[in-house]
Computed example of a mutant assay.
Amino acid sequence: MRETFHRERCPNDDKDVSRQAAEWFALLLDDSATANDRAEFRSWLERSPDHVATYSELERLWLGASALPEVLPNAFLKRRKLLKSGGALAILAAAGAGSAIYLWPAAADYRTGVGETARITLPDGSIAELSTASAISLMFTTGQRQVILQQGEAFFTVAPDASRPFVVGCRQLNSTALGTQFSVGIHEEGIVVAVAQHTVRVSSPSQEQAVSEGQSVLFANDRLSAPAQTDVGTQLSWRDGKLVFISTPFEEVVATLAKWQRGKLIVMDKALARRPVSIIVDVRRAGRILENLEHGLPIRIASYSPWLTLIYPQ
C-alpha cells in the first residue's frame, strides 16, 4: 500500500514540487511512517536541489512555530526525532536550508503587518491605503512627490498639484498620476497597476503605456502588457474589508488568501486547484478565513501548525 501511495501522490514527473513536498511532510508527520518511507523520502530529496529547498521551507515553518505557546511542544519533539531518524535534517543542513527569511524593508516610512490594512494621509494631502503586508517610503520635496512601493499593494487618491507630479515607483516601474485614483501591487505574476479614476502613465525602462479608468496593466519578465479592461472594484475589494472571487481557479484564491494570514497554504489536489470558485471572504475576520472557507466549499483543511495548512478535496 505504501508503494502505491507514493506512485499516486508523489509521481516523479509531477512538476508541482510544493505539492510533493507537502505530501511527504504529511506522511512523515505520521508516527506510522516506516523505514522504507524515510528511505524513499531521502531518495526524493536527492533528486533535485529544488526538492531540498521546498521541503526545507516547510520544515522551517514547522520548526519556527515551536516558539508559539499554543503549539504543544511534544508534537515538535516527536517531529524532530522522526526527521533525525530518516537523515533528512542532515541533508537539509548540508544544502544550506535554502529557505527565505521574511524581513521588513528597513527604509519603509509606513507599513502594515499580515492581515492588516492602513489609511495614511501623505504630506501633500494625498491618501495612501495599504493592503496586507505592505510597505512604502516617501520622497517628497518642493519639486517632486514620489512614493516607493517596497512590498505588497497600495491604493492612492492623489491630491492635485500641477507643479509636482505624483509618481509611484516599484522596482523598474514608474506610475505617474494624470488623475486621482489608482493602485500598484506586487503579485506573484508581476507588478499590476489598476486605475479606478482618470488616467495613469506607466513606464518601464523600454516601454510606456497610458492606462485609463477601468483598465490595468501587468509588468512581468521586463515586459509591460497592453492595457486591459478590468473589474477594478472586485480587484480592489480589500479596501472594503473583503476579497471577492468570481469564477477564479481555487489555487489563485488560496494564493491571495495566503497573503492575509501567516504560514503556508498548499492545495493538495490538482483538480481542486484548477476548479473555479466564486466566494466572498471577510478579511476583517482574518482569524476565521480558513474556517469560513471550509464551510463554504467542499474541502477539508488539515492544519499541522499555525504555519502550515494543507487543503484537500472533501
Rank of each mutant, 00 (worst) to 15 (best):
M1I: 09
R2A: 15
E8V: 11
D13C: 10
S18R: 14
S18L: 12
Q20S: 14
Q20M: 10
A22I: 01
E23F: 01
E23W: 02
W24A: 04
A26W: 00
L27Q: 06
L27F: 10
L28A: 10
L28N: 05
D31C: 11
T34C: 03
D37L: 08
R38L: 12
R38H: 09
R38T: 09
A39H: 03
S43G: 11
S43E: 13
W44S: 00
L45W: 00
E46P: 02
R47C: 05
P49M: 12
D50H: 15
T54L: 09
Y55E: 05
Y55M: 11
S56A: 13
S56Y: 00
L58V: 14
L58H: 11
L58R: 12
R60V: 10
R60K: 15
A65S: 15
A67Q: 12
V71Q: 10
A75N: 07
K81N: 09
L83H: 06
G87I: 08
A90Q: 11
L92G: 06
A94G: 14
A100S: 15
I101T: 13
D109S: 15
T112W: 00
G113Y: 03
E116V: 06
T117Y: 02
A118V: 05
R119S: 15
P123F: 09
D124K: 03
G125S: 00
I127E: 01
I127F: 05
A128S: 11
S131M: 03
S131K: 04
T132A: 13
T132D: 07
S137H: 03
M139A: 14
F140H: 02
Q144S: 14
R145Q: 08
V158S: 03
A159Y: 00
A159S: 04
V167P: 01
G169L: 04
C170I: 08
C170D: 12
L173N: 02
N174T: 06
S175F: 00
S175M: 05
T176W: 02
G179Q: 09
G179S: 10
G179I: 11
F182N: 02
V184S: 00
G185P: 02
G185E: 14
G185F: 08
H187G: 08
E188T: 07
G190Y: 04
A196E: 08
A196L: 12
A196N: 11
H198D: 13
H198Y: 08
V200L: 10
V202C: 11
S204H: 04
P205C: 10
E208A: 08
V211E: 01
V211D: 04
A220V: 07
D222T: 15
A226N: 14
Q229M: 13
Q229A: 14
L236Y: 01
L243Y: 04
E251R: 14
L257S: 07
A258R: 07
K259C: 09
L265H: 02
A271V: 09
L272T: 00
P276F: 12
P276M: 11
V277F: 04
I280H: 01
I280C: 07
V281D: 03
D282P: 07
R285D: 14
I289G: 06
E294I: 04
E294A: 15
E294Y: 01
G296S: 15
G296D: 08
I301T: 14
A302Q: 15
S303P: 04
Y304M: 05
S305V: 12
S305D: 10
W307Q: 13
W307F: 08
T309E: 03
P313R: 01
